[in-house]
Simulated scan of single mutants.
Amino acid sequence: MRRFIIFLTAMLFVIPGCNTTEKVEGNVQIANDYLEEHGYNVLRHINEDSFLLTEGMVSQLPDKLSCSVQEFTASDHIGKEMVVEYFSISNHPFDIEHEETMVSVIISDGKAIGGNSYNPVEKGMRGENGIFSLDGSKQY
């Protein structure tokens, strides 16, 4: 009986953890593939975040800044959960001044739809020089 209780207790921790890990790994893989398709070398995954995109985010500061440099139309995704994966990459135009560049990849409905790059002030931190499109060509 004691073994059975220990087994059930262990399963309470293992089963929910497996489902969460699969989802996170799926989003990380989607974002990683997106970056590689765009010619970037992924050095490491940094973090994950998610949010519900609202109309206010598309039209008001400060979120409007990130939306303004995207290749996708942000208003098409209002009301959807957006997952943002953060990476450190190389082979980016910002690498001229820095060894690596921090980027984010935005995922909606299980598909990578865009992202941002950040000109770092110091290694591993978002820069103070503005928000850029993923390829660094557009800045707000």
Rank of each mutant, 00 (worst) to 15 (best):
I106L: 11
G124Y: 04
T73V: 08
T73A: 11
F72C: 06
L65C: 10
I78V: 11
N119P: 01
E81M: 12
N41E: 00
E55A: 04
K23F: 07
N41W: 04
G110H: 13
G130V: 01
G136C: 06
V121K: 11
I106R: 00
M11D: 07
G124T: 07
S66P: 02
I5H: 14
N116V: 02
H38N: 15
Q70L: 06
A10S: 15
S68F: 03
R2V: 13
F94K: 01
L134N: 02
L12M: 15
Q70K: 06
M11K: 11
D49H: 15
G110K: 10
I78T: 01
I15L: 12
S104G: 11
T9Y: 02
F132P: 01
D109M: 04
P16R: 03
F94H: 08
P120H: 10
F51C: 02
P16E: 02
Y34W: 10
I113G: 08
I131Y: 09
V103C: 03
D49S: 15
K64L: 07
N129L: 09
C18K: 11
I46M: 14
F51A: 06
G26P: 01
L35K: 06
V58T: 08
S75L: 03
A112M: 10
G130K: 11
T20E: 15
V121M: 13
G39S: 09
G136M: 05
S66V: 12
E36Y: 06
R2N: 11
G127F: 13
I106C: 09
S104E: 09
L61V: 07
H38I: 09
S133Y: 05
E55H: 03
M1L: 15
K111V: 14
F132A: 05
T20S: 12
I113V: 14
E22G: 00
V103N: 03
D49M: 11
L65W: 08
H45W: 15
P93W: 11
V69L: 13
N119S: 08
I6Y: 14
S68I: 04
P120F: 07
G115R: 02
R2S: 12
I78F: 03
V58N: 07
V105S: 02
N19C: 11
P120S: 13
I15M: 07
L61F: 14
K64E: 01
N116C: 03
D95S: 13
S88D: 06
I5M: 13
E85V: 06
N129D: 09
Y86M: 12
L12W: 09
A10H: 10
V14D: 09
Q29V: 10
A10Y: 07
C67A: 14
G39W: 10
M82D: 00
G39N: 08
N41K: 15
S75C: 00
T73M: 04
S108F: 07
M125P: 02
I131P: 04
N116P: 05
